[in-house]
């Protein structure tokens, strides 16, 4: 039992980080904090991938320069690490685009709190209903 818990420590941490990130995205009203949550959520996945590449007793997958590979040496699997390099790039692009959008939202709405934004948008919709909703009896 103890073996099971400690042996899968990386995976437990993956679960905790993933749910923390997802919770922040859902529960926080501040747009920047949401992006931070999203970042934690994505980072958790990096951890999942890197953990699965590790082989017990395995060393870094670098062959000696003379290419005399000792068959007794166990190497970790490098493929998940390479995949995660790509995913990190995707994560950076998403974060920077998200933050750029937040900057633009602040320019237009003068706030980055979700609640205030929803309030402003509700006012816009009410105004639209009054000016365009004639056919639907003033509401739509």
């Amino acid at each position: 039992m103890w073996e099971f818990i400690v042996g899968h420590l990386n995976y437990w941490l993956f679960c905790v980080l993933m749910m923390t990130g997802l919770y922040i995205v859902v529960a926080r009203g501040n747009l920047v904090k949401k992006i931070v949550g999203l970042n934690i959520f994505q980072t958790a996945v990096f951890m999942l991938y890197i953990s699965m590449g590790k082989i017990a007793g395995g060393t870094a997958p670098i062959f000696p320069t003379d290419m005399n590979v000792d068959p007794n040496v166990v190497y970790s699997n490098p493929l998940p690490h390479v995949l995660i390099l790509t995913a990190i790039v995707v994560g950076i692009a998403t974060t920077s685009l998200g933050l750029a959008l937040v900057v633009r939202i602040r320019e237009e709405y003068d706030t980055i709190e979700e609640e205030d934004i929803l309030h402003i948008e509700r006012d816009i919709v009410t105004a639209e209903n009054q000016s365009h909703g004639g056919a639907m009896g003033g509401r739509a």
Binding site: L38, F41, M52, T94
Partner: peptide, 27 residues
């Protein structure tokens, strides 16, 4: 219409969660 920004932001959050779920599945 400035609401395009919040629409894009919502799409970014949802789309990224979707893509990340997908990549967990691939893992």
């Amino acid at each position: 219409d400035k609401r395009a920004l919040t629409a894009a932001y919502d799409y970014l959050i949802m789309g990224t969660i979707g893509a990340t779920f997908f990549v967990i599945g691939l893992g």
